[in-house]
């Protein structure tokens, strides 16, 4: 089923999404990948607060290539989500509602998604030039020293993704391989 959804995700949106739905996202996404996740986890362990309010937000696992002059961003496709699995349940328990990446997730992440009613989307890996055209704004909001791994706030329009794991825990990859 094809859907157009505004970010941040509402509980109603999440409840209506099913694994296999083709979705166009419009609104704000935050980027974070390996190094930013490690730093956020360390901050939380030390009793600190995250550099942005994660409750209700969607994280895009992505580190862009540099923008040429006149461009908002460089190539900007998804990275492998499973590398963030170690850190993800805690972020879901803090209220994160959506994730965009590629590849499988761990049983712990899927359990945390069900517990917190969140959704995992895949964008097409290796289509970074195409996906960059849907990104209308990009600004660094934290960890600038991490370069491509800094946390960015993006504004996207009609950003194409596929629901891989829905809030009931149905896993499109799992169904395909089984």
């Amino acid at each position: 089923m094809e859907k157009h959804i505004r970010l941040p995700l509402t509980q109603e949106d999440i409840g209506g999404l099913r694994a296999g739905d083709y979705v166009y996202l419009t609104g704000e996404l935050y980027t974070a990948r390996d190094a930013a996740h490690k730093r956020m986890a360390e901050t939380l362990c030390a009793g600190g607060t995250l550099p942005f309010e994660i409750a209700g937000q969607t994280i895009y696992y992505m580190g862009p290539s540099p923008a040429r002059q006149g461009h908002v961003i460089g190539s900007a496709g998804p990275t492998t989500a499973s590398r963030m699995d170690k850190y993800t349940p805690r972020l879901l328990d803090l209220g994160m509602k959506g994730m965009v990446g590629k590849g499988r997730r761990s049983p712990e992440v899927i359990a945390a998604m069900r517990r917190n009613q969140a959704v995992y989307f895949a964008a097409v890996g290796g289509a970074g030039a195409l996906l960059s055209k849907c990104i209308k704004k990009a600004e660094t909001v934290a960890y600038e020293d991490l370069g491509t791994e800094a946390v960015r706030r993006l504004v996207v329009e009609e950003f194409p993704v596929i629901v891989v794991i829905d809030a009931e825990g149905t896993d499109l990859y799992g169904n395909l391989s089984g």
């Binding site: 190539s75 496709g77 097409v124 289509a127 030039a129 195409l130």
Partner: peptide, 28 residues
């Protein structure tokens, strides 16, 4: 149909990369 759609996106991606000098994939 979904696989065809994805392969279509990959072809379009290659075209955009070449025409606008954007790397094919952000992981260069």
């Amino acid at each position: 149909p979904l696989a065809s759609r994805i392969l279509g996106q990959l072809e379009e991606n290659l075209q955009i990369a070449a025409e606008e000098s954007i790397p094919i994939c952000q992981d260069t």
